[in-house]
Design a protein around this nucleic acid. Sequence first.
DNA 1: CGTGGGATTGATCAATATCAATAGATGTGG
DNA 2: CCACATCTATTGATATTGATCAATCCCACG
Lengths: 251, 251
Amino acid sequence: MSKLGITTRTGCPPLSLGSTVAPLERIASLAHYHFGQTLYCESARADYWYRIVSGAARECILTADGRRQIVDFLLPGDVFGFSCRGVRGLAGEIIVEATTIACYPRRRAEELAESDPMVARRVREMAFESIERLQARTVLLGCTSAIEKVSAFLLEMAARSATAPNAAIPLPMTRYDIADYLALAVETVSRALTTLRRVGAITLLGTRRVQINDRNRLLNPGAAMAPVERSDAGRALRANARPVTSCEHRT
Amino acid sequence: MSKLGITTRTGCPPLSLGSTVAPLERIASLAHYHFGQTLYCESARADYWYRIVSGAARECILTADGRRQIVDFLLPGDVFGFSCRGVRGLAGEIIVEATTIACYPRRRAEELAESDPMVARRVREMAFESIERLQARTVLLGCTSAIEKVSAFLLEMAARSATAPNAAIPLPMTRYDIADYLALAVETVSRALTTLRRVGAITLLGTRRVQINDRNRLLNPGAAMAPVERSDAGRALRANARPVTSCEHRT
DNA sequence: CGTGGGATTGATCAATATCAATAGATGTGG
DNA sequence: CCACATCTATTGATATTGATCAATCCCACG
């Protein structure tokens, strides 16, 4: 890790974005990063948009009380770094050795979007994808129990890593990262994984790969989790939800 | 609440969006809703974008275990309803009587964005605002203690309600809504508010208005919270964060 | 005046954070 | 190549926090 050695060359391959947005790819530059490097820090100006080509990164923030909250994991294909104020507010950090990222200069990309409607559409779609990723994230953080959070996290990683069904899922991040992502203690994450392994829901292949054996147990951890059947299996409909008038709209 | 009575008329006032995007406002229709009405349900097609003109709404989801998770509160000025898959995935519900919403037909808005770069830019900015709102939300949900969550929630509402500093902040939602937003039990929210009131950080003006007396106590609840000084005040830098190499980028 | 939804407070119990110890992994330098 | 240092991961014991159950209060509204 001694020399940083970031090689930068312009003009990168289209990479699954469709030929109509080739103009966007022409202004991108590919950069290579090492594990632990900082892509941008919280106070940096938001002058680039990014796309993970290979490897992984995290966006995080140090809270007032000294904790680190990971706001998003970025995996291959994910576009990130959008901002409407000029400043980042979040730090972007590389978590996998030899990560390659496509960097889009914001000003030029915006100019391009203003002259090419197809580029504008693509940028809009990328932003919408970010929104849906963050909404899913919110639902995940809303889980109450640690088992639920970890289960939901594994399912999210399975969906995002785009591997074959039933294939092993790579976990590019440490348990500490997972803990900061789920707002749990590391020990709790570790224990939840152990519990899921014990009941047969997953198999741990080393520490950084997981095989999902029983999706249903992960989807509904409370119901099928406890080795000893829980007495309260019946009352599922707890919580604060109140009835609402029907779904129709526009009379 | 017997008759739904949604009045819809096309052509609505510009409303702080700047004159350059008047085209976008020309295709909007204003609709009036009652407390408790459903704007769209989870399975609905995502055919509209929305902007709150007055009143308030929530976006929420029923989780597998029967809880309701509120993903976002929508306040005047907020634009929402973006989707990249065709389906909502979240339900939109009105939480304030006589809420007015500007509705933008998605297809026409997109056509407009493709013919008018200024409209495209404005749509992009609105999407980026959504992203930042959701990122802030993630940080909030990452808080570990209930006092922290409620404190952060009050600060968020203060920032978003755009009232004068030190003015009373309206809370358009019930305690149940707040609880489902913060992933806490109602009782816990109530207790946290009571605690904050007791230590003088806030004043409750009725149940739906809050006055913030001491921002610092809300920003750093752990430090100044306990009536009896806590013995561990010194160790603030706990948590899972690990040091990272410096912030430089591009050698 | 009575009713019902919302809000608050109390008591109890389960879940998780924390503290502590240890073991595995990985990388460095002798 | 091995020994050491450091980071990562797991497991155990304990204390604290928040969910849950229960009761009461408050307020708007018919």
